[in-house]
């Protein structure tokens, strides 16, 4: 057996076929092979959330997933969420409310927040914090992050209601 394996997957909307070293976690792989910088290496033991990415639409800790496990899957990083405009409102609110300082946790925070926003229903501040409970930020003290998500959620729910009418 070789220490590499051929995989095929969709990365940020593009189909990729590539030979992958088996022991690489997907964050190292995305960073080294595709020069995607948004997936961040934070703790490499699944605690800090800086490596959070989307796999088949669900949240995943990238440092706890092997690159070879991407085979047949759809992988999305913050670069893609930026490009599709899915979280444009949230990104703008993060800047306006200063919900980031150094920015290192921000990819994971935004992707985790997007997961909550995707559910399309209002959530309390406590529920927002709960959803973020596995994402570490050393700079902000979290409040501005919670404020931003809450504000975008309210706006989305309201415009959803208007659209329904």
């Amino acid at each position: 057996m070789s220490e590499q394996m051929q995989i095929s997957f969709i990365l940020n909307g593009e189909r990729k076929q590539v030979l992958v070293p088996m022991r690489l976690h997907i964050i190292d792989f995305l960073r080294e092979k595709y020069e995607l910088s948004s997936p961040r290496v934070g703790c490499e033991h699944g605690v800090c959330g800086a490596c959070t990415i989307r796999v088949d639409g669900e949240l995943a800790r990238g440092c706890l997933m092997l690159a070879v496990q991407a085979d047949g899957k759809t992988i999305e990083t913050l670069e893609h969420l930026t490009q599709t405009g899915e979280i444009k409102d949230l990104q703008e609110k993060f800047v306006e409310r200063n919900a980031l300082q150094c920015g290192y946790c921000t990819s994971g925070m935004l992707i985790t927040a997007a997961d909550l926003l995707k559910q399309g229903k209002p959530a309390s501040r406590e529920a927002i914090r709960d959803h973020l409970s596995g994402n570490y930020c050393r700079c902000t003290g979290y409040e501005a992050i919670v404020d931003s998500i809450e504000a975008v959620m309210k706006k989305r729910v309201e415009s959803g209601k208007r659209a329904a009418r």
């Binding site: 948004s38 930026t82 993060f94 980031l100």
Partner: peptide
Amino acid sequence: MPRPNAVRLVEGRAQYVDDVM
């Protein structure tokens, strides 16, 4: 005033040392 240099951070375009190749 919001921070203009925060925009690249929310778009995943920051450049930390590990991003320099």
